[in-house]
Nucleic acid binder design. Structure first.
Lengths: 152, 152
DNA sequence: TCCTATGGTGGGTGTCGACCCACTATCTGT
DNA sequence: ACAGATAGTGGGTCGACACCCACCATAGGA
């Protein structure tokens, strides 16, 4: 007899379903860890952007990460309050706010990265190292190097 | 120069991030299609469970799909209103409601399945058939045949 | 200098999914 | 027949997320 908890094969045959399901657990587990520090996913994304590409005007963070400007203001506000980024007016255009990663922010990002890898180990437990590599490769191709092209 | 829209490599190196991102687009695109018919993802899951395993008591649907009983009631109510399932009291235990797929429901599921595959073609466009197969295989392993074990 | 556009901020809205509680109907064991 | 468990339902809450608008400061061109 089939387990009364088995997922319907009709759904398991759909990559769409698997992606959304697995993606959801990955997302929520990571979000859980971050929330223990009072952070959300966007905070991490902003820190990563600053670490990888250097200081950004807030509008450039908006463009890069595809968030609403108003929401970005709130994220940056929170990160600044925690001492993880610095906000300075751009002297060349005093409308702009230059956001810079502080050493504390860099440290935080390192920790968050470790958290993310821990989550990864949980979620991808059934796969060996090689399989994980293949999976990451495929996901990267799907995602596209430029971020998901938004074609409505 | 690097595109001002490129996603931070720090994030692209994390399968956690990729999974959550790609999963989210898959999820929301499918949800969009379903919402055009006034349906949600759970509706499809319920139809699939009924098609694959035959009639269920509502409580068994709850156990199989891991939804809140109260929410399941609403989903089933909606499906019944649309004529896609039938609800009958179980004569052997009149507390139970037996949910059965109607022919209309089966037809609907077929259509929804086609929609899901269309979404799949959009999302997985960068991959060829073999790569898609590998991806599906890996996701299936990650998901586990019994559905994600929920270990809090 | 005035007009318009741009960058940023604060506040509010709508939706969504997950969850929880109170209540009714029914069953089961004593 | 009664007590306690179980199945389903209706109603409401909560947090996350995306989105939108009004507003202020500043810049840059006519």
């Amino acid at each position: 007899m089939v387990s009364a908890r088995a997922t319907p094969p009709s759904l398991l045959g759909l990559s769409t379903y698997l992606l959304s399901r697995v993606g959801k657990t990955a997302r929520s587990r990571l979000a859980l860890r971050l929330s223990e520090r009072g952070l959300r996913l966007w905070d991490m994304a902003v820190l990563a952007a600053l670490a990888d590409f250097g200081p950004h005007a807030q509008r450039d963070l908006v463009a890069r990460l595809g968030v609403d400007p108003s929401d970005m203001a709130k994220v940056v506000e929170q990160l600044a309050a925690g001492g993880h980024v610095e906000r300075d007016r751009d002297p060349e255009d005093r409308r702009r706010v230059l956001v810079t990663l502080t050493p504390a922010g860099r440290t935080l990002l390192t920790e968050l990265d470790a958290e993310a890898r821990a989550v990864q180990d949980e979620v991808l437990a059934p796969l060996d190292a090689e399989e994980r590599r293949v999976l990451r490769e495929l996901l990267l191709r799907v995602h596209g190097p430029e971020g998901a092209p938004y074609a409505p």
